[in-house]
Simulated assay, not measured.
Amino acid sequence: MPEAYATSAVASGATGFAPTGGVQPILSVKHIEKIYGTKDSVTHALAGVSFDVAPGEFVGIMGPSGSGKTTLLNCVATIDTVTSGHILIGGRDITNLRTRELARFRRDELGFIFQDSNLLDTLNGFENISLALSIKGAPANQIAAKVHAIAETLGVSDVLKKYPYQMSGGQKQRIAAARAMAAEPKLVLADEPTGALDSRSATVMLEAMEMMNVQFGATIMMVTHDSYAASFAKRILFIKDGTVFNEIRKGDTSRKDFFSRIMEVVSFLGGDASDAR
């Protein structure tokens, strides 16, 4: 068994995975469980998951189909509720928030990038990005400058006047990324952000996310089945049977070497892995 997943603590799904450096985490997941069904037929989608994400980290979540990775993302995104345990974002326990508080929390603290960009078809690129700022209550005289700045950084200035049907898949995803970043959320959640893109568009999108992380200091948690996409992250948590099975960190290694290490673990888990591009 490769060293990356040789320890008994990891193999047993032990908890306590944390960022290095003793930094106060942006996200802290503490022993969460998600149980579906009744007493006669119970499914543990999540079975005691714990980990921390530090400010400025880019963390990937991987695992075979049915492992619980999407359920985990939905719980962190407050789309779903946990059966037990706690999730803290920016030190605030979101598992105790009421419906109105949750809506405000999603608006102010979270950014979302979905597999389908989820842009509003009746708004152009500029309006899709600026809507996030308007909803958050940003001063009207500051919105245009912020939209143009983030659009230029992510390479979509030339499509700000276009509507989603006039954009390529990659352009729509980068507009969605700009929308997610415009309101400066504490945490950006990405759900298979390259799943609907061709190889070239996927690479451009991943480079844009990497830029968001490096230049803007965005904290990103990305769920993906794609080892190539995961290699753009700095740390990967592997979920198996509703528990954290293992983690690996990129450190100072190249992305190519990190990809190889990811592929080793994915192959061991028996999950799907996309070819290197």
Rank of each mutant, 00 (worst) to 15 (best):
M1P: 13
E3W: 13
A4T: 12
A6I: 10
V10P: 08
T20I: 11
G21T: 02
P25L: 10
I26V: 15
L27S: 04
K30T: 13
E33L: 10
G37V: 05
D40I: 01
T43N: 12
H44Q: 10
A45R: 05
A47R: 15
D52Q: 00
F58M: 04
V59M: 12
P64R: 15
P64D: 10
P64C: 10
S67I: 07
G68I: 01
T71Q: 04
T71Y: 04
N74V: 01
N74T: 03
V76I: 12
A77V: 00
D80H: 05
T83H: 07
G85K: 08
L88K: 14
I89K: 05
G90A: 08
G91Q: 10
L97I: 01
R98K: 15
R98Y: 04
R98E: 09
T99A: 13
R100W: 12
L102T: 09
E109T: 12
I113P: 09
L119C: 05
L123E: 06
N124T: 06
F126I: 05
E127D: 14
L131K: 00
A132Q: 08
S134Q: 15
I135L: 15
I135P: 09
I135F: 06
K136V: 04
A138I: 09
A140D: 12
A140I: 13
A140N: 14
Q142T: 14
A145G: 13
H148R: 15
A149V: 09
E152Y: 00
S157E: 12
D158G: 07
V159N: 07
L160V: 05
L160D: 09
K161R: 14
P164M: 00
R174M: 02
A176K: 11
A177N: 10
A177Y: 05
A180F: 02
M181T: 02
M181E: 06
A182S: 14
A183G: 12
E184T: 08
E184S: 14
E184D: 14
E184H: 13
P185F: 03
P185G: 07
K186V: 06
K186A: 11
L187M: 11
V188G: 02
D191C: 02
G195W: 01
G195R: 04
A196R: 08
D198C: 07
D198G: 05
D198A: 08
S199T: 15
S199L: 10
R200S: 10
R200D: 12
S201L: 07
M205H: 14
E207K: 15
A208C: 11
A208H: 02
A208I: 01
M209L: 15
M209G: 13
E210M: 13
E210R: 15
M211K: 15
N213G: 02
F216D: 07
A218W: 05
I220L: 13
M221E: 08
M221P: 06
M222S: 00
T224R: 15
T224P: 12
T224I: 06
D226F: 03
Y228Q: 13
A230Q: 07
R235H: 14
I236N: 02
L237D: 07
F238L: 06
T243D: 09
V244R: 05
V244H: 06
N246M: 11
E247L: 00
I248C: 09
K250H: 05
D252R: 14
D252M: 13
S254V: 00
D257F: 06
F259L: 14
S260W: 06
R261F: 01
I262N: 00
I262C: 05
F268Q: 14
L269Y: 08
G271T: 09
S274P: 06
S274A: 11
D275Y: 10
A276V: 07
R277M: 13
R277F: 12
